[in-house]
């Protein structure tokens, strides 16, 4: 965490907008998986309604984060390995595509708005989101720090 902070400090003008925005879809889609599970176990529509709102909010904030992420990917291309940028772009698009379908499935009424297709989509969305985050964004920050420090020494 110290290193992440140091990046922001040593490169003024690099606002962590993407990092701020992307926390919303991460929380929303993870929350939707949990409320989907709660609905599948209880058949209480309250949980399915929560899922529908979380997925809608995740979709909107996810699109905003996606725009910010694309700007970052282009702006930081010299210090951010291509394969990680690709991971982030492809993973992000996959997550938003799955979430779009998940939103549509959740617009059905009652049981089949969640079980089984909605629940499955929510689970896959969260899984791909975690893989993308693991391979894409966090590691890149370590690389950013390394590049910076090298640059300072030279």
């Amino acid at each position: 965490m110290d290193r992440d902070d140091s990046v922001v400090v040593v490169r003024p003008g690099w606002h962590p907008l993407f990092q701020i925005l992307v926390s919303f879809p991460i929380a929303c889609f993870t929350g939707a998986l949990l409320t989907d599970i709660a609905y599948a176990r209880s058949a209480d529509m309250l949980w399915a309604d929560f899922s529908a709102w979380l997925l809608a909010a995740g979709m909107v904030t996810g699109l905003l984060a996606g725009i910010a992420g694309l700007v970052d990917v282009v702006a930081k291309r010299r210090i951010w390995p291509l394969w990680q940028r690709l991971t982030l772009v492809i993973g992000g698009m996959l997550v938003l595509t799955l979430a779009l379908f998940d939103n549509l499935v959740h617009s059905r009424d009652a049981w089949t708005s969640v079980v089984p297709a909605g629940l499955a989509l929510s689970a896959i969305t969260v899984f791909i989101m975690l893989v993308t985050a693991w391979l894409g964004a966090p590691k890149s920050y370590r690389r950013v720090v390394a590049v910076q420090q090298t640059g300072v020494r030279q």
Binding site: A40, A43, V105, V115, P116, A117
Partner: peptide
């Protein structure tokens, strides 16, 4: 509830 899966319907649905 998880027991009540309907794979055929799910496929058609997606």
């Amino acid at each position: 509830a998880m027991r009540v899966f309907r794979p055929a319907l799910a496929t058609a649905a997606v």
